Amino acid sequence: MKVIALLSLLFLAGCSQDSAPTRTPEQVSLGFFHAIYVERDVNKAKQFVSDPMKEVLSHYYIASAVQRHVLNLSMTEVTMEIEEIDIDFFRKFTDDVTVIVKMQGLKGGRTWIDDRTIRLHKIGSKWEIIEVLPEKGNLN
């Protein structure tokens, strides 16, 4: 009888914990860009962003509009990788990071390589994208 009670207690304790695994800033960043550029699914991209960013994504509604107006980069056939992240060994002690994602694909039918910088904030154990930083080259 004690064994059944113990197993029941362990089962209930396991159910109360968050079942989603904790994502790293790199996974969140790549997941967001993959949802917008590869899957072209704005709703899927919303799981990686903060509430204010969700409102922005909802406003533009479709992935091509998010590419144009939020990310300033319309591309197809995109592959991506993490170019740079501004955290290191002390990752556990920081709540804000900046990630640069390098993307390769087609822009206007021609091969294009570009990057985008995003800022993430840690809320509890979850990383969320809170901002797409302006491009450094566009000072017009």
Rank of each mutant, 00 (worst) to 15 (best):
S64W: 10
L6V: 10
H69R: 15
A13E: 14
P52S: 04
R23S: 13
L7Y: 13
G137A: 12
I36M: 11
G108R: 00
L9K: 09
H34R: 10
D95G: 07
I130F: 02
I87Q: 00
D51I: 05
M53N: 04
A13M: 07
V42D: 00
G31S: 12
T24M: 09
Q17K: 09
C15Y: 11
S74F: 13
K46H: 05
V28H: 00
C15Q: 12
N43H: 14
I4D: 11
V97I: 06
E81L: 10
Y61A: 15
S64P: 10
M75A: 11
A20Q: 14
H121P: 06
L106G: 03
T76H: 09
N43R: 14
L71P: 03
T22N: 14
F89D: 03
Y60K: 03
E83W: 03
H59M: 11
D18Q: 13
K46Y: 02
D86N: 08
R116I: 01
L133D: 04
S58D: 14
P52Q: 04
K107E: 15
M1H: 12
N138C: 09
S58W: 08
D88Y: 02
T24D: 00
L73P: 02
D114G: 03
R23T: 14
A5M: 09
T117G: 05
T111A: 13
R68P: 14
W127T: 08
Y61L: 13
K92D: 06
E81M: 09
D96W: 04
Y60M: 05
L9I: 10
D88N: 04
G124P: 14
R119S: 04
S16P: 04
V97C: 03
V70D: 01
K46W: 04
I118G: 02
I36Y: 03
K136L: 10
V3P: 01
R110K: 08
A45N: 11
F32N: 11
H69M: 13
E128I: 10
K107Y: 12
I36S: 05
D86Y: 00
H34T: 07
S19R: 11
K126G: 08
I36G: 05
A20E: 15
N138L: 10
V56C: 07
W112K: 08
D41H: 07
L71C: 15
L133H: 07
L106S: 14
E55C: 05
I36P: 09
D18Y: 14
I4C: 11
T79D: 05
T76K: 12
V42T: 15
Q17V: 14
G31C: 14
V49H: 01
I113H: 00
V66W: 06
L71Y: 13
D114L: 03
E84C: 02
I118C: 05
N72S: 12
A13I: 09
T79Q: 02
S8A: 13
T76P: 02
F93G: 07
N140Q: 14
P21N: 10
V28D: 00
W127N: 01
T117D: 03
V132N: 07
G137V: 07
G105N: 01
I118N: 01
I85T: 02
I113G: 00
A45W: 02
L57S: 04
T98P: 04
V3L: 11
A65N: 15
P25Q: 00
L133N: 06
L6W: 08
I87E: 01
Q17E: 13
Q47Y: 02
N140H: 11
Q67S: 12
T22K: 15
L133S: 07
P134R: 08
H34A: 06
L6A: 07
E77W: 01
L12A: 12
M75R: 13
